[in-house]
Amino acid sequence: MEAHDFETGHKPTWCPGCGNYGIWQSLKNAFVKLNTSQEEIVVVYGIGCHGNMANFLNVYGVGSLHGRSIPVACGVKMANHRLKVVVIVGDGDTYGEGVNHLLSAARGNHDITVIVHNNEIYGLTTGQASPTSEKGTKTKSTPLGVIEEPLNPLATAIISGASFVSRGFAGDTDALRDLICAGIEHSGFSLIDVLQPCLTFEKVHNFDFLREKIYKLEKAEKDKEAAIKKTFEWSEKIPVGVFYQEEKPAFTDQLPQLKEDTLVEKPLKDIKIDELLKEFI
C-alpha cells in the first residue's frame, strides 16, 4: 500500500497552503506505515473544512453531522471492534457543538482516534470565533472581541478519562504521522489535537509563528496532574507530542457480549425467546 491508494481521485478543495493538507498527508502515511488495508478502516468526519476530507480519502467513511462524529464512531466500534476507527473533526465541531460527546467517549475509553483540526476558527462558515479562539479575538461573529476564555481541550480530555492525549502540528507531517500511528495503535480513547493554520481566517497562528514556538515533549506523563500542568503551557513555548498516556481496558474490552465475536457477526437465525417469555406468566 502506498499513500495514493488512500486517495479517491477527488482533488482537495482546501485553500492553497491550508494546514488540512498536512493532516491529510500524515493520515495517509500513517495508514501506510501501519500496513492497514482500506476496508478495515472507518473514518467518521465532522462538518467543517476538515470534513471535506470525506471526499478525498479512500476508506469506508461516514460524513456525519456538525459535532456528532464521536458517537457515530463509538457506534461503529461497538458494532465491529475489529475495525480501526478514526474521527476527523474540527475545533468548532468537537470543542463546541458536540463537546459533551468528547467527554463521554473519553470517560468510556472508547477505542477511537479523534484527530481535531484545531485552527481556532470556524473555517467553513467563513471565519467566526471557535471555542479555542483566544480571548479578545475579533471575528465576524465577535467584532467586539471574544469574551470567553479558550477551552483547554487536552486538560479536558485528561480529566475526562482519555487514555492517550496529544498535540500535533500540521506543519510537521512526519511527526504527525507517527503521532497518528501511536494514537491508532493505542487501545482506548486517543485525542490528537492538531495545530492547523488557517491562512484565510486566522492570521495569527500561522506556520511561521507555530514553527518558532513549538517544541517536542520527551515522553508522555503517567501522572495526570503533571500532564494537566503541561497542557497550560501556551505562550512563549508550545509543547507538541503525547502529554498523557495510560494503559487501561477500552470500552469494548469490558463487554462480555464481545468476548467471542463482534456484534455484527452475531447470528440472526433461530433466535428463541421462549425462555424470556416464562417471566411473563
Binding site: 472507518v42 461516514v62 457506534g75
Partner: peptide, 17 residues
C-alpha cells in the same frame, strides 16, 4: 443525541439497532 448517533454508527457497520 449521542444515543441516536451511536445507533447510526452501529447500523452503518451492519448491526440491527
Amino acid at each position: 443525541i449521542e444515543a441516536i448517533d451511536m445507533a447510526i454508527g452501529g447500523s452503518f457497520a451492519g448491526v440491527r439497532t
